[in-house]
Each structure stands twice: as structure tokens, then as C-alpha cells.
């Protein structure tokens, strides 16, 4: 019983880090209409930049994450403005191809610079453990990452539902043409949001980094799993996306511990297929 609870809580914490990436993927998708298959590779990029900052100047990832945010914001805005926007009106496959291309460029660029062997980034709280309710033990960085995902979700909700900028973002999402007719500079807003979505990868990278080995190929996993969370949540419902990410983390942990061998890894994907079959409109959305 204790093992079950420990595993479930662990899974939910991991789901929190998926949620960090899934929420920003959802934000960029909903505003620009582009599914960015390089999203997870920006996460790896920010992780390796944090690695570089640590090796060169001994900057802790928790600090370099904040410093890298503006850099990734500019990078994301630039990628949208110069690469994605020019093809945004063409066939969907063209856009997907382009983001996949960016993914390969990032992955192989990192491989070229940092090599393929797994790397670790030391951090202040790397080995800190929290004990809760007697026997349950958690690694501090995972708790921080989970807390970070809650904060991000709250910020996103505040931004979208309680600010003028959020009202404009929703307008562009619901009807970009009408938004332009209200005097909103739609391409500029989309560029900014894309920048924010990529910028958040710097924070997410820092939160997920301590104590976890990284390699240049990690990005694909952090595109596919958040994408699953996005689809499970019904694409536009941020609470659904968040809970979807937690559910994937949860089933992944339970599957790995309680289902024998590698078939345990299949549990979250089986769940995903079930959701697609039974609730294609999204977990918590009315049809």
C-alpha cells in the first residue's frame, strides 16, 4: 500500500514537469495555430545552456533559468517571425515539416557542441530530500518543479482570464480575422506569445534539470508527451491539459512499478489511445 502511494505521488510530481512543457505548448498552439514539434528541443537547448553556464561560471540552474528566459523569448519570437509565419498560411504538413526540421537542427546542433554522452548539471538542492507523512520521500527538485507547474498554471489563468492582454489573446484564438478588425496587431501578438511559450522552456528546463541526466535526444520525449497531454485535455482547455499531464505522469509511474518489464512503459500510451477512443473531445470537455 505504501509503495502504491509513494509511486502515485512520485508519478504526479513527474506529471508536474510534463505539465510545465504542455501548458506552454498549449499556449503557443492556441494562439498561433501551429503545433511546434521542436517544442521539447527548446527545452533541451535551455538545459544545455544551463549546463554551459554551470561549467563556465558555476551558475546554479535555478538562477541561469531566469537569466535564460529573455534569451529563449527572443529566440522563440525570432523563429516564429522569420521561419513559421511565412509558411503559416500554407499546407499544415509544410508547417509540421518545418518545426520537425527545427527539431533536427537543434538536436544535432547540441550533439555537435556537447556530444552524445549523458551529462549532469550540479545544483544546490540536487540531493535534498523531503520526507512527508512518515515514510514518503521526495527529491526536492521534483517538488520544486511541481510547485513551478502550479505557479505557471495560475499565472496563465490570471493572464488569460483577468488581464487586457489575456482578452486579446483569447480574441486572436477565437477569431483572428475579427481581432485584426478590432485593431489588434495579430502577427505581433502571435510572435510575442510564441516567444513567451519558448521562454518558459528556460524556466521549465531549470526546474527539471537538477539530478537528472540530459542528452541531446531528450527533446523528442518532451514534445510527444506534452502533445499527448494537449490532445487529452482537448487542445484548448488549460485545466484539462494540466490534468492530462498529471495523468500521464501518474500512469507512467504506476506502469513502470507495477507492470512487469518494458510493457509497463506502454501504460500511458494505452491510456492515451483509450481517451482518444472514448473522449475524443478531451477529458473534461463537454462534447
Amino acid at each position: 500500500m505504501d509503495l502504491l502511494i509513494q509511486t502515485a505521488l512520485q508519478g504526479i510530481l513527474i506529471g508536474g514537469s510534463y505539465a510545465l512543457v504542455a501548458l506552454s505548448l498549449g499556449l503557443t498552439y492556441n494562439v498561433s495555430g501551429i503545433i511546434n514539434f521542436a517544442h521539447g528541443d527548446f527545452l533541451t537547448l535551455s538545459m544545455f545552456l544551463a549546463l554551459a553556464a554551470q561549467s563556465a561560471w558555476l551558475i546554479d540552474p535555478y538562477i541561469s533559468g531566469a537569466l535564460l528566459f529573455p534569451l529563449l523569448f527572443v529566440l522563440g519570437a525570432g523563429v516564429y517571425h522569420f521561419l513559421l509565419r511565412p509558411v503559416a498560411q500554407s499546407h499544415l504538413l509544410m508547417v509540421i515539416q518545418l518545426t520537425l526540421g527545427i527539431s533536427f537542427v537543434l538536436q544535432n546542433g547540441l550533439l555537435m557542441v556537447f556530444g552524445g554522452q549523458p551529462a549532469r548539471v550540479p545544483s544546490a538542492f540536487e540531493t535534498t530530500l523531503f520526507q512527508a507523512g512518515g515514510d514518503f520521500i521526495f527529491r526536492a527538485p521534483q517538488v520544486f518543479a511541481f510547485a513551478g507547474s502550479v505557479v505557471l498554471a495560475l499565472l496563465l489563468w490570471l493572464l488569460l482570464d483577468h488581464t487586457e492582454a489575456g482578452r486579446r489573446i483569447r480574441a486572436v484564438h477565437q477569431n483572428p480575422r475579427a481581432a485584426a478588425l478590432m485593431g489588434i496587431d495579430v502577427p505581433r501578438l502571435r510572435m510575442q506569445i510564441f516567444g513567451v511559450g519558448i521562454g518558459v522552456q528556460a524556466i521549465a528546463g531549470a526546474l527539471m534539470l537538477p539530478g537528472v541526466p540530459i542528452d541531446p535526444a531528450l527533446g523528442f520525449q518532451y514534445t510527444v508527451i506534452p502533445l499527448m497531454a494537449l490532445v487529452m485535455g482537448g487542445l484548448t482547455d488549460f485545466l484539462g491539459i494540466y490534468l492530462g499531464a498529471l495523468l500521464i505522469g501518474l500512469t507512467e509511474a504506476l506502469g513502470t512499478v507495477f507492470v512487469s518489464g518494458t510493457s509497463g512503459m506502454m501504460v500511458p500510451y494505452a491510456l492515451f489511445i483509450l481517451v482518444l477512443l472514448l473522449r475524443p473531445q478531451g477529458l473534461f470537455r463537454r462534447a
Partner: peptide
């Protein structure tokens, strides 16, 4: 615009 083009879910 023609067809009103409101923001339907707001």
C-alpha cells in the same frame, strides 16, 4: 464584417 464574426465564446 459579413456574418458578424464575433468572439463566440466570450
Amino acid at each position: 464584417p459579413e456574418g458578424r464574426q464575433l468572439f463566440p465564446r466570450m
